[in-house]
């Protein structure tokens, strides 16, 4: 499992797309929003939590179709399926590697982009915490979507259509947590709920994703 994890990391770094592309996309989306809604700092402060969360979510979506695609094409996914470690563990490892290459950099970069959107001073800490707690769920749900569409030729668009509705609860709690943090309100409830979603997804979705992979490898 550890070997698979480091292999995925190394592949992502060598391909260069992993860290860079998602971060650049996140930066561009965040920079485009003021062009769309105008430079009024008051408006930007109000919408910053939501924009940052939506931006992070879309950036996360970009690299999902590559989680299994390369391994499927060169046949190493078949080998992984017959390997001594269970397929569920393979899926969980893949999701973890995806999070380290996209979710983690997004979490670390988000406060900087918060400056661009004039996020309220109290929001930076909670923005980071909410992304750290929420982006693992995005990676796991996305891995499930990638497992469903791995055999398809033009799976990318379908993948977005399948995964985005599943992202709704995570987005709601994540943005709400950041907003409450920024406005200095109580944050316990959304924090507990978003952590619950991440833990629940981590516990259950690898089984669904592994089932989908087995069907696709049949």
């Amino acid at each position: 499992m550890l070997a698979l994890f480091t292999r995925d990391l190394r592949l992502a770094i060598r391909a260069g797309g992993g860290f860079g592309l998602a971060l650049a996309f996140f930066l561009i989306v965040t920079a485009l929003v003021p062009f769309g809604v105008g430079p009024d700092t008051g408006v930007l402060t109000r919408i910053a939590p939501g924009i940052l969360w939506v931006g992070a979510l879309l950036a996360c979506l970009l690299s999902l179709d590559r989680i299994f695609a390369l391994d499927y094409e060169d046949g190493s996914l078949d080998l992984l399926a017959t390997a001594p470690i269970p397929l569920e563990a393979v899926v969980a490892t893949k999701a973890a590697a995806h999070w380290v290459t996209t979710g983690l950099p997004l979490t670390l970069a988000a406060p900087l982009l918060g400056v661009l959107l004039n996020l309220a001073p109290g929001g930076y800490l909670w923005l980071t915490i909410s992304l750290a707690a929420g982006t693992p769920a995005l990676s796991i749900i996305g891995t499930f979507g990638a497992a469903l569409t791995v055999g398809l030729k033009r799976g990318g668009l379908l993948l977005s259509l399948l995964v985005l509705p599943l992202y709704v609860p995570t987005l709601i709690f994540g943005a709400e947590l950041t907003r409450r943090g920024a406005e200095g309100q109580a944050v316990e409830t959304p924090l507990a709920l978003i952590a619950g979603i991440t833990l629940g997804a981590a516990a259950l979705l690898p089984f669904a994703a592994a089932a989908a992979l087995r069907v696709n490898l049949r």
Binding site: L148, L166, P169, L193, I197, A211, A212, V215, N216
Partner: peptide, 23 residues
Amino acid sequence: DLTSVLCLVGSVFAVISRYALIF
């Protein structure tokens, strides 16, 4: 097979979304 799995997972998330939206 795949749509059935999606339907199961989707149902769980639909229920979670419902409560998330009320919140």
